[in-house]
Amino acid sequence: MAEMVRRRGRSGYLLIIPGGLWLLVFFAFPFYSLIATSLYDPAGSDFRGYQMTYAFGNYVDVVEAYWQPLLRSLLYGAIATFFCLVLGYVLAYAIAFKSGRWKTLMLVLVIAPFLTSFLVRTLSWKLLLADDGFIVNTLQLLQVLGDDGRLLATPFAVVAGLTYNFLPFMVLPLFASLDKMDYRLIEASRDLYGNPVVSFFKVTWPLSLPGVVSGTLLTFIPAVGDFINAELLGNTNTRMIGNVIQSLFTDANDYPAAGALSVILMTMILAMVLVYVRRAGTEELL
């Protein structure tokens, strides 16, 4: 019996090996390379090469130079995550409790945008928000926008694109939490409290918090690092940190600065995620 238990224990470790090798090859090594790149001598170039001088000053320099797009990315990501939470919670609640036999179809419609390219979906928003498009013309007709008002190349367009593209990442975890909830608890709470608002915050919201935490993380993290929406829907004043990193890597060939910015962004997001998860108390919810 003891021998069987030991074999099962070894089998568990053997099953971890493929995933561990995958993480080692495609995460640990690239992450080490990125950190090393961020510490190269900033005076190097593609022609002269780069020397490892442990130039920690690269981090200070990029923060001083690019703190605005860094904070802008956090702000846009937070706003888009909030909108995704509000819209996604309503949609997930409707699918979980009100859709009936149409539940599967509605879930398919939620993930249907993934059947097309991320780039195509963003370009479609560029067409919708164009200066001569139906939306802008209608808003101008209703005097919501002035005659020279526009939506494209504005922060609104960037946040709208982020919200649209990452909304499914919020809906699916929320639906998973709400769908396994016993609806009789909600009915009982309404009998006890008699107020739908109180019932929601006392019963529905606490029970759905695992989905809320998962959805906000899955939405916020990629939204902060995104550069496609800001590139296609924004302007030079709405550049996000992803645009800066991409430009430093591909246009300026300033690899130390791009690497330092990437490490700073990952470190900031990791710290925020750890604080958020700890504050949300997911250890008790899961």
Rank of each mutant, 00 (worst) to 15 (best):
M4Q: 15
R6V: 10
R8K: 13
R8P: 04
R10Y: 12
G19V: 03
G20W: 02
G20H: 02
W22I: 13
F27Q: 15
S33R: 09
L34W: 02
L34D: 05
P42N: 10
R48Q: 10
G49K: 09
Q51K: 10
M52K: 01
Y54H: 04
A55V: 03
G57F: 00
G57R: 03
N58Y: 06
V60S: 12
V60E: 11
D61R: 12
V63N: 10
P69V: 00
L74C: 08
V86W: 00
L87I: 15
G88W: 00
Y89V: 01
L91N: 13
A94G: 14
R101C: 11
T104A: 15
M106E: 07
A112E: 11
F114L: 14
F118S: 12
D131E: 15
G133C: 07
G133H: 05
I135N: 06
T138H: 00
T138I: 03
L141W: 09
L141I: 07
V144I: 15
L145R: 01
G146I: 09
G146F: 10
D147H: 04
D148G: 03
L151M: 11
T154W: 06
P155H: 08
F156Q: 06
F156A: 13
V158F: 08
A160L: 14
G161L: 09
L162M: 12
N165S: 09
D179R: 10
D179H: 14
M181V: 09
Y183L: 13
R184W: 04
L185V: 12
A188W: 06
L192E: 12
P196F: 05
F201M: 04
V203I: 14
L209M: 14
P210T: 10
G211E: 06
V213Y: 03
V213N: 04
T219M: 08
F220V: 02
F227C: 03
I228T: 02
N229K: 04
E231K: 02
N235Y: 00
T236A: 07
T238P: 03
R239Y: 03
M240Y: 00
V244H: 00
S247L: 08
D251I: 07
G259A: 07
A260Y: 01
L261Y: 03
L265Y: 03
M266I: 15
I269F: 01
I269A: 04
A271G: 09
A271V: 10
A271D: 08
R278P: 08
G281A: 06
T282E: 13
L286W: 05
